[in-house]
């Protein structure tokens, strides 16, 4: 492993594990940021893992940038050798695919899309080799996803599907970004899914919406009272495709503040996963059905 380091001005160190996305690179980045966290280095102010890279922010009046870089480099061997085993959790998230709101938004911005004559779902299904939108949705919600980064705006997760590379769903971003995206839209750009935590501009293809808030600055939603953001890097997410009736019912119980997502603690081993991807995923998703 060789991480490419760079000083980002006088307050950041940027570490790129690899140019391309892979779970191995994500885990290396996460091991590095976990090591920085554990080392409790004076002067470090922000520790941000990303998909295949990471960033450390520091106060150079407190810690010398070159000393900090040397310290980071000293964590590399341990990060590379560590058997990537993560104590994490799997979260089931209901998603109403082909919903009327993203559909309406998608029609409103057709002239900014690669293929103005298809919907985002039709276009993405076709370019990924699926005969129908239903088959595409089945693939999208059939296997779990890793939260490989949280950011852009508050609480927005980037998700990387836990399948082999040839099965990865890929889609370009809109030619020109939209000025609007419904809140809690499930979007896709490059090889990443994202959940728009707030309404706003966006360039990802739009496939559906979840009724479940994932960011609550007022901390009133019952499962967001401690942490205002639902997701953190390393979480595993399984989408559960739901229809209009279940969407409406879930929304009603969210509005009454009675609903929470199914969350189970789990352990993830990258080695086991690479040896048997679908077997590992099956075991993880079984947890959601158990107690």
């Amino acid at each position: 492993m060789s991480i490419r380091y760079n000083f980002g001005g006088d307050e950041h160190i940027f570490g790129e594990v690899s140019e391309e996305m892979s779970l191995t690179s994500f885990f290396t980045g996460l091991s590095m940021t976990n090591a920085v966290q554990a080392a409790n280095i004076k002067g470090v102010t922000e520790i941000c893992p990303a998909n295949a890279s990471f960033q450390i922010r520091f106060n150079p009046d407190i810690v010398d940038p070159h000393d900090l870089l040397k310290e980071l480099q000293s964590f590399e061997d341990a990060a590379a050798k560590s058997d990537p085993v993560l104590k994490t959790r799997i979260i089931e998230l209901p998603v109403y695919f082909q919903d009327p709101w993203t559909h309406e938004t998608c029609l409103r911005f057709r002239e900014r899309h690669q293929d103005p004559n298809s919907t985002d779902l039709e276009y993405s299904a076709r370019i990924n080799g699926y005969a129908t939108v239903d088959e595409f949705i089945a693939a999208y919600s059939g296997q779990p996803w890793f939260v490989s980064m949280v950011g852009f705006v508050a609480g927005l997760p980037f998700l990387y599907q836990m399948v082999e590379r040839k099965q990865q769903i890929q889609a370009p971003k809109y030619l020109r970004p939209r000025t609007d995206t419904p809140k809690l839209t499930i979007g896709h750009g490059g090889c990443f899914a994202a959940i728009y935590s707030v309404r706003g501009a966006g360039g990802y293809q739009m496939y559906g919406v979840t009724p479940a808030p994932i960011y609550d600055p007022t901390r009133k939603v019952r499962y967001l009272t401690d942490e205002m953001c639902l997701f953190k890097p390393g979480d595993i997410v399984k989408f559960k495709a739901i229809g209009r009736d279940e969407y409406d019912a879930t929304l009603e119980s969210i509005e009454a503040n009675r609903w929470e997502p199914t969350v189970r603690n789990c352990t993830f081993s990258l080695k086991d996963f690479n040896a048997d991807i679908y077997g590992t995923n099956a075991k993880l998703t079984e947890l959601l059905n158990g107690r």
Binding site: G8, G9, E11, H12, F14, E16, S18, E19, E20, M21, S22, C48, A50, N51, A52, S53, F54, Q55, R57, M149, G151, F152, F158, Y160, R165, Q168, Q170, P172, K173, G189, G190, C191, F192
Partner: peptide, 18 residues
């Protein structure tokens, strides 16, 4: 690179320094 996107200015989504 895999996951970056086709535009020459695209990278695999990463952190943005201030």
């Amino acid at each position: 690179p895999f996951g970056a996107g086709s535009d020459p200015s695209n990278i695999v989504d990463a952190c943005y320094p201030y």
